[in-house]
């Protein structure tokens, strides 16, 4: 069943001198429990699509639905994880997580216990009272995930969450996040410009054109890669074939028109 639906979505940005056509026409759905990735060249409109789905900005035309309800403003059912952790530097790790509960006015013993459990699953229990500056980039991104999950969203929007990390940390974090989301039966929409990451983590991949974005191609990742963890999938013999295939498609994108 479709959890997120985008139907004929268009988005223009206006400024005094310019109208920027960011999204020309995007149609797709994400089913409950699915992990879908959007890949495309930088500046093609990936973040814009996530911001639209999160209800942070309004679309110009078309329909965006969470189950059957139009998304017009932010919703605690949708969690958003930014490119960098953006933890509040003046708060401890624990306070950073509690802030999410405070804002949605759901801070109570039970929800706090839930977040501490998540923190333990991220192997960060002993860091609850540390300041963000005392943690590494990978640790901070794990905290940011806990903060996003604190509101118990059913849909997670991930905007290149691994791009600021070193390669080894990134591989480990891919595995951890993939496992956590599957365990908790979360639906995820990941944006990335990293082909390997998309293949390793997703059930489906949508390839975007240059701006103004349209969906150029749609890939269904086969069972043998999907059932494996991202790290194992990368070792699988067919992984490289998929990489080549998508690489070619990316290469063959029409050059930017505007």
């Amino acid at each position: 069943m479709a959890l997120l639906t985008l139907r004929d979505v268009k988005k223009h940005f206006f400024s005094q001198n310019d109208v920027v056509e960011a999204i020309r026409n995007v149609n797709f759905t994400v089913d409950t429990g699915e992990f879908v990735s959007i890949i495309g060249p930088s500046g093609c409109g990936k973040t814009t699509i996530l911001s639209l789905a999160a209800g942070l900005i309004e679309h110009s035309e078309g329909e965006i639905l969470l189950q059957d309800t139009p998304i017009t403003k932010t919703n605690t059912n949708i969690g958003y994880m930014l490119q960098q952790d953006y933890l509040f530097p003046w708060l401890t790790i624990g306070q950073n997580i509690d802030m999410a509960l405070n804002i949605i006015k759901r801070k109570n013993k039970k929800n706090q216990a839930y977040t501490r459990e998540l923190l333990a699953q991220m192997n960060l229990s002993d860091r609850e009272h540390d300041m963000p500056s005392e943690l590494s980039g990978g640790m901070k991104q794990r905290v940011a995930l806990v903060r996003t999950l604190a509101a118990k969203p059913s849909l997670l929007l991930l905007d290149e969450p691994f791009s600021a990390l070193d390669f080894q940390t990134k591989l480990k974090l891919e595995d951890l996040i993939h496992r956590t989301l599957k365990e908790k039966e979360k639906t995820a929409l990941l944006v990335t410009h990293d082909i390997s990451e998309a293949i390793a983590m997703s059930d489906r991949i949508l390839l975007l054109t240059h701006r103004p974005a349209e969906i150029k191609k749609h890939f269904k990742i086969p069972e043998e890669l999907r059932e494996r963890s991202p790290l194992d999938a990368r070792q699988h013999p067919t992984f490289q074939d998929w990489f080549q295939l998508i690489w070619k498609e990316l290469e063959n994108l029409e050059p930017e028109t505007t």
């Binding site: 932010t74 605690t76 949708i78 509040f88 003046w90 999410a100 804002i103 509101a151």
Partner: peptide, 23 residues
């Protein structure tokens, strides 16, 4: 981006001020 973080949780203007701008 710090403001965007609380925006994703649907923060009100007062919450934005109290939790982000002021500190």
């Amino acid at each position: 981006n710090l403001i965007k973080v609380v925006d994703t949780f649907g923060a009100s203007t007062l919450q934005k001020f109290y939790y982000v701008i002021l500190p």
